[in-house]
Amino acid sequence: MTKLLLSLHVLAAIVAVGPVTVAASMFPPAVRRAGTAPDTLGTVALLHRICRVYARLGVLVPVLGLATAAAMGVLGDGWLVTSIALTAAAAGVLAAFVLPRQEELLDELGAGHTVERAGTAQLAMFTGVFNLLWATVTVLMVIRPGSTTGA
């Protein structure tokens, strides 16, 4: 059962978190391009939709991760507690800063306003923080400090 849970957890991370990290990273430059090429507004809207939809699917990642950790008996391990905290932080950054700012920029473009580069800089920074948090969680999942697997 542990192998099945772990497989589902990894698949959920790849399928749900991967698209959010890529689409969120593509969003700021797409907004800048949309300011000079209005026909790209559909691309910006699609990137935001990908982020919203896959963020919801991303809830499966920690749920399956906790089930896997319980099955493995590692719920109290430091690397897991740290990963849980970083995952919560990543979710918070996405929900509080990335998605709302994407919506604001999309609304500005939809109203025909031009978005200056400075208007996307903060979003790019928050997106980078989100991606860095997920990368750190991924590294912790792979190296698992104190693991007895020899990896």
Rank of each mutant, 00 (worst) to 15 (best):
M1V: 04
K3Q: 03
L6D: 06
L6R: 13
L6W: 05
S7A: 10
H9K: 09
A12F: 02
G18Y: 02
G18M: 05
V20N: 05
A23V: 12
S25R: 14
M26A: 13
F27Q: 01
P28R: 06
P29Q: 05
P29I: 06
V31M: 01
R32L: 06
R33H: 08
G35S: 14
G35F: 03
A37P: 10
P38S: 05
D39N: 09
T40F: 00
L46K: 04
L47G: 10
R49G: 10
I50F: 01
C51T: 13
R52N: 08
R56D: 04
L57C: 14
L57R: 02
G58S: 01
V59P: 08
L60Q: 09
L60I: 14
V63Q: 02
V63S: 01
G65N: 10
L66K: 00
A67D: 02
A70F: 12
A71H: 08
M72C: 09
M72S: 09
M72Y: 11
G73E: 15
V74Y: 06
V74A: 08
L75R: 13
L75E: 15
L75I: 15
W79I: 12
W79S: 07
L80F: 15
T82F: 00
T82A: 10
S83V: 02
A85Y: 00
A85V: 15
A85E: 04
L86Q: 11
A89D: 11
A90D: 08
V93T: 10
F97N: 04
F97G: 04
V98A: 05
L99S: 03
P100N: 00
P100L: 03
R101T: 12
L106G: 00
L109T: 05
L109P: 02
G110I: 12
A111E: 15
G112K: 11
V115H: 03
E116G: 05
E116R: 10
E116D: 12
R117F: 04
A118T: 14
A118I: 13
G119E: 10
G119K: 07
A121D: 09
A124H: 10
A124Q: 12
F126H: 08
T127E: 00
G128N: 12
G128D: 11
G128V: 05
F130A: 08
F130W: 07
N131H: 06
L132D: 01
L132E: 03
L132W: 08
L133S: 09
W134G: 14
W134V: 15
A135H: 07
A135L: 13
V137R: 12
T138W: 11
V139G: 02
M141A: 04
M141H: 11
V142E: 03
P145F: 10
P145C: 11
P145D: 07
G146A: 07
G146P: 14
G146E: 10
S147I: 07
T149C: 00
G150N: 11
A151N: 04
A151L: 08
A151P: 07
